[in-house]
């Protein structure tokens, strides 16, 4: 197992380097540059040239990449080409809010999806089953921005009980309660999504297990129904769910871009959008690398958990 993890980490390194190279190429091919974005075009050519030199954009693309890579090896992600803030600081300061939003949504989403999916499978074609399946379809198919705007209308404009944007109230001391209030609406939107997707996975996985012969055997040997379900069915049904949850993390990162924009959540999504729009090369590179690391780590964790949960899987040698 240990060897397996080490090997996976070593495989991850060339993958990450490849991702940064591809990202750099695509980024360099996109029209526009951070200098174009700086000011209206009447700024003289000499001034633009000075700015290019200052930002290191006068060198050929591969030299720019190598210099970025050299700094990366020293743990330096460089400076934003627009704000001159260290990229690492920018990412770290926005990572917290995004993780908070995603973490809470994932936990609540799963806490809803798992029991509901199981119940729904056990009572197939019952009213509860139909309600759960319909609900899950709604959760998947109602667009995030639509649900978000609807919630804002009801809770912020009409009832005036929830703040429509941000993570804390500007001018207040903030605090846990304040953050909690700001969390409610974005979490509802993301949870609807997570729960919607996973109810269906849990349900179908459970339905499949319920057909298995070993359940009949368990019942035949006289086990109580709750034991049959909880010990034999549910635990096996949840194994494939681990994979799905591993995939949830990158999806949530993507969904966060939209949600963060609607609710002005101070996370990584907004930073990504504005860096791309302003062609802030160094920040885009940093964000891309972060996203790649997260996906790879999420995958690795999924595989490890898989092995821990399912004794049939072994990653030795």
């Amino acid at each position: 197992m240990f060897n397996y993890v080490i090997r996976r980490i070593f495989i991850a390194i060339p993958v990450l380097i490849g991702v940064t190279i591809i990202n750099f190429i695509i980024m360099s091919m996109a029209p526009g540059s951070p200098v174009d974005m700086l000011i209206s075009p009447q700024i003289p050519a000499e001034a633009l040239a000075a700015k290019r030199i200052e930002l290191g954009l006068d060198a050929p693309a591969y030299v720019q990449y190598l210099s970025w890579f050299k700094h990366l090896l020293q743990g330096d992600l460089g400076y934003s080409m627009i704000t001159y803030e260290p990229v690492l600081n920018m990412i770290l300061s926005r990572m917290g809010p995004t993780l908070l939003l995603m973490g809470v949504s994932l936990i609540i989403g799963v806490a809803i999806a798992v029991p509901l999916g199981i119940l729904s499978a056990r009572k197939q074609y019952s009213k509860l089953d139909y309600a759960a399946v319909t609900g899950s379809f709604l959760g998947i198919s109602v667009p995030n921005f639509f649900l978000g705007l609807g919630l804002i209308y009801v809770f912020s404009i009409w009832l005036k009980i929830l703040p429509s944007s941000g993570m804390t109230t500007l001018g207040s001391e903030g605090g846990f309660g304040d953050i909690l209030l700001h969390l409610i609406m974005p979490v509802i939107v993301l949870t609807a999504n997570v729960a919607g997707r996973n109810i269906r996975y849990v349900r179908s996985s459970m339905l499949e297990i319920l057909e298995q012969d070993y359940l009949r055997t368990a019942r035949a040997k006289g086990l109580k129904e709750t034991l049959v379900i909880n010990r034999h069915a549910v635990r096996n049904a949840l194994i494939p769910i681990i994979t799905v949850l591993g995939m949830e993390i990158p999806i949530l990162f993507g969904g966060a871009v939209v949600i963060e924009q609607i609710f002005s959540w101070p996370g990584i999504g907004q930073l990504t959008m504005s860096s791309i729009m302003s062609r802030d090369y160094s920040t885009i590179m940093g964000l891309n690398l972060t996203a790649a690391v997260i996906v790879i780590v999420a995958n690795l964790l999924t595989d490890i958990t898989y092995a821990l949960v399912d004794p049939r899987i072994k990653y030795s040698k």
Binding site: L170, G171, S172, E173, G177, D178
Partner: peptide, 29 residues
């Protein structure tokens, strides 16, 4: 639950004289 006790004490601490201005372009530096 811990959070809730915080909320209750919040308003008194946050009654600063403040004006919030909405902008659609971010101050890039």
């Amino acid at each position: 639950a811990c959070g809730n006790t915080n909320t209750a004490s919040q308003p008194s601490a946050s009654s600063k004289k403040a004006v919030n201005i909405g902008i659609t372009f971010s101050p890039s530096t």
